[in-house]
Amino acid sequence: MPQVCFEDVTAGMALPPLVKGPMSSSHIMRWSSAIENWHRIHYDKEYAVGHDKLPDIMVNGSWKQHVLVQLLTDWAGDGGWLWKCSFQFRGMNVPGETLSAWAKVTAVAGAGEFGLVELEIGLVNDAGTESTPGTATVVLPRRNGPAVPYPFDPAVLGAAAGARG
């Protein structure tokens, strides 16, 4: 994928969504096992429904966050950097749902040799119901400019770093 540059980005543009699923109990089990998460609402349907009064076992919030991070990291490319992102787990997702991570640019601003892109982000199911709304800040190189230094130090953004720190 070619490196996206600051000049390519305008407020209002949407990133290509990242789609996962349909999700299954096996996907949830694989994630819970990978991170050793033993919360019963992720694998014990009798407990989830009978004890916690949930509709089914739950897709882990901890998994959903990495899908959002993947969307933004892929878009930023190796020459850019996902600096900040935040999100809240406002809704539940269950097996059978296909989940789409989305992002929309809300603002762009130059920052020294680089560009700052502010985004709204989230994760919707097949019905379009939002479960994980949030925001993110991505640092991009300028066309014909240097890659964002790695490891990333906000000081390279000059005054813009302090304004968003």
């Binding site: 916690d52 600096w83 900040k84 809240q88 787990f89 490891p151």
Partner: peptide, 14 residues
């Protein structure tokens, strides 16, 4: 009794 994950705020460097 119930514990839930409410969300995250990240800042990445490396």
């Amino acid at each position: 009794p119930r514990l839930l994950n409410g969300g995250y705020r990240y800042e990445f460097f490396r």
